[in-house]
Nucleic acid binder design. Structure first.
Lengths: 151, 151
DNA sequence: TTTACTGCAAATATTTTGCAATATC
DNA sequence: GATATTGCAAAATATTTGCAGTAAA
């Protein structure tokens, strides 16, 4: 979870990004960032929209989408694509890997694996990495157990 | 690229899968698999549909989608989600990582990094991994150079 | 002969876009 | 005051679904 200091860091990062791009610091943009920071773990555009509405703050969906795109560009959130039908996001705090169950779709986060970019630096051929996403697909414990029961 | 032996292995795997699920071995399903095997690298549902049409073989898009889902379940192809708007696929041959340029969207494959699942086996907590997808996001050489030119 | 599969078209759902009104700089 | 941004609704697009006809087993 993000503590108060982290929240300020993310806000500053977004502000700097907007300033550098000569874009406007609108209340909508910061309200959306705030809402994202209050979500533990993953969230999607629709969830943010509904949370904002629930808090009595109205923004259009188009604005939620465009702001998420900006936050993503600014490196404040990461866009994750687990399934075809919607993009999910997470605050770009610490890195971790995702365990994705191919049966029930459950997604769990685990601490980062011992993956070293340096170990393949020679293969990158001029590519400048900024973020590594590791997704481990398989069958979660619960689904594994259900499978056994059926036998 | 797949050689003749590989192709037979993939076909057998799909056949075995269909038999085990008591599903029918229709010509459409094998025509779609064939077409996928002839694509080097990535492909999507639309590309397969168009290739099939170009070869004078008609299948409906719904069938392409459902067959890709089956091939994915059978472990013959892997479903990759690089952008929101469409699923891409690849033959589940050898494992490799993807370099994804966040500027131009170009996707390059590189040999697998030294990632060891065993090294975090204790964190998997009953999760049975079957496939690991590593995506390295960053800026490719070409976009890096364009950036410099602009300065 | 049974019923799973296909094709087609309509439905669904997410994201994008155009434009007038508004608010930031 | 200039113009980037918002909201709204409509558009665009990928995927799914329902159903009747067809073909694999």
């Amino acid at each position: 979870m993000s503590d108060i200091t982290d929240i300020e860091i993310h806000k500053k990062r977004f502000t700097d990004f907007l300033v550098s791009k000569r874009m406007r610091k609108t209340p909508e943009r910061f309200e959306i960032l705030n809402c994202a920071l209050n979500c533990n773990g993953h969230f999607d555009a629709d969830l943010l929209y509904n949370l904002l509405e629930a808090n009595g703050y109205h923004v259009s969906k188009a604005t939620v989408y465009s702001t998420l795109e900006l936050l993503s560009e600014a490196g404040v959130v990461r866009k994750l694509l687990f399934d075809t039908h919607q993009a999910r996001y997470e605050i770009a705090d610490e890195s971790h890997s995702h365990l994705i169950c191919t049966v029930c779709g459950e997604i769990t986060e685990i601490a980062p694996p011992g993956f070293e970019v340096k170990s393949c630096a020679d293969m990158l051929n001029g590519f400048h990495p900024s973020y590594i996403s590791t997704c481990i697909y398989g069958i979660c414990r619960k689904c594994q157990m259900k499978k056994k029961d059926r036998k």
